[in-house]
């Protein structure tokens, strides 16, 4: 429960933060928290699968990807999450709506089916929506990438919520998906910076009718 609460707080902080560095710090913390939740929730599953998931959370989500994002941030000198200032009140309001919606949805769905754990489900949905909000509300592609990672963390929480044990091949593919997407998109951000002179979304509007 404490781990979930802490995870929820990281989401709120990410939703209102202005600095990229803070978002990366929160991603590291989320990776560690997911590691803890995986130990608590998944101790009954196959050992190989469990070890794989623990490595995924602790090594990849909490260390490898944040370090890579830090490198991309430094190389491209990106410090703020958006080129234009977004009001703190507006962001806070969005986060309040997301949390209220997630907990209501989790509660309602739990009433209709006891196959899910409402708390994990609610925080998972909140993480997915926060990820989408980071993508929609900000105009820097690095922030979009971090929004995608938050969304993936939300999916991880959903797997815990439904108690589903994916086959190891699917878990492997999920990990491959995240790592490749982040690495490839990170490299593309570097190229964007070189070719377009910036990493704002406005630079990516040449392809149109």
């Amino acid at each position: 429960m404490l781990l979930l609460l802490a995870f929820g707080l990281t989401l709120v902080y990410m939703g209102i933060a202005d600095r990229v560095r803070r978002l990366i710090d929160m991603l590291i913390l989320q990776g560690v928290l997911l590691f803890g939740m995986a130990i608590v929730q998944l101790h009954h599953i196959e050992v190989l699968n469990l070890v794989f998931i623990l490595l995924e959370t602790l090594v990849v989500k909490a260390v490898v990807l944040p370090l890579f994002l830090l490198r991309v941030k430094k190389k491209n000198e990106i410090s703020r999450v958006s080129t234009t200032a977004v009001s703190g009140f507006s962001k806070g309001l969005w986060m309040a709506v997301i949390i209220a919606f997630s907990f209501t949805a989790g509660h309602l769905l739990h009433e209709s089916s006891d196959a899910i754990q409402a708390k994990y489900f609610s925080v998972g949905i909140a993480a997915i929506l926060t990820g989408i909000m980071l993508i929609v509300k900000h105009d820097k592609v690095l922030t979009h990438l971090m929004g995608y990672l938050v969304l993936e963390n939300g999916i991880f929480l959903l797997t815990l919520a439904v108690g589903g044990e994916m086959p190891i091949i699917v878990n492997g593919a999920i990990l491959l998906d995240i790592v490749l997407a982040v690495l490839v998109l990170g490299l593309i951000i570097n190229r964007l910076s070189t070719n377009f002179g910036g990493t704002a979304l406005s630079h990516l509007s040449e392809l149109k009718d």
Binding site: L151, D177, I188, L207
Partner: peptide, 14 residues
């Protein structure tokens, strides 16, 4: 091509 690749990977991943 770079722009299209970014959009393709990002949106497909979502």
């Amino acid at each position: 091509a770079l722009e299209a690749t970014w959009k393709y990977i990002f949106l497909s991943s979502i």
